[in-house]
Design a protein around this nucleic acid. Structure first.
Length: 198
DNA sequence: CTAGTGATGTAT
DNA sequence: TACATCACTAGC
């Protein structure tokens, strides 16, 4: 796994204080999973959003809201925060920053590279292309992630990130406002979404 | 455009 | 215990 062409992102990457920067940096990195007793599936992270804790009206942890569900966001960075949205879709977030500071990055899209046949099985898609997994619910379905993976450390060979040699220049990442958070008033306009350009 | 889906949060 | 809400998707 770890040679000079690929390196596991470890705790020191996730514990850093600037979640918006981490969100930008995760865009273009690789995510892999080994779930379901199946082999590795994964791809290049093509879209992320930052959720910046207690002062961000779009965040589940806004106003220091601490419940059974949001407790995960308060953990030390480097674990998965997975919750069910609209009764159907499990959404995968990466918890960042130190304990008690509830920052997270939502993984909104990947370009599949590994385990294409398993991804076809899980999604039911007959063909897979670089745009097939362009939504947060599609990503978790393809990677075999559900709410049972909440609190999973990103160091356990179940869900993990790698950096590889491919250079993703900064200018190839577009920045926009976040999706589906109209309830967040002025914070809905924050430039916290990062998308890899074609 | 809209229905579907169920865990979660908040109020009773 | 009840009810509204929701970091979405697929199918018209």
């Amino acid at each position: 796994m770890e040679d000079r062409n690929s390196m596991l992102l470890d705790k020191s990457f996730y514990i850093r204080p600037d979640v918006v920067k981490i969100s930008r940096e995760l865009t273009g990195k690789y995510i892999f999973t080994k779930t379901d007793g199946k082999n590795i599936t994964g791809g290049i992270i093509s879209e992320t959003e930052a959720y910046a804790g207690i002062n961000d009206k779009a965040s589940h942890a806004y106003n220091n809201k601490r419940t059974k569900r949001t407790e995960t966001m308060f953990m030390t960075g480097g674990v998965a925060y997975v919750y069910l949205c609209y009764g159907i879709h499990s959404l995968l977030n990466i918890v960042t920053n130190k304990e008690d500071i509830p920052h997270a990055v939502l993984i909104r899209g990947i370009i599949p590279t590994d385990g294409i046949d398993i991804i076809k099985q899980r999604t039911g898609y007959k063909k897979i292309n670089k745009n097939s997994l362009n939504g947060p619910g599609k990503v978790t379905k393809a990677l075999g992630i559900d709410i049972s993976h909440d609190k999973t450390p990103l160091s356990d060979n179940i869900i993990w990130m790698e950096v590889r040699n491919e250079k993703i220049p900064k200018q190839n990442i577009t920045v926009t406002k976040r999706i589906g958070i109209d309830y967040a008033q002025e914070d809905a306009l924050l430039p916290y979404r990062f998308v890899l350009e074609e």
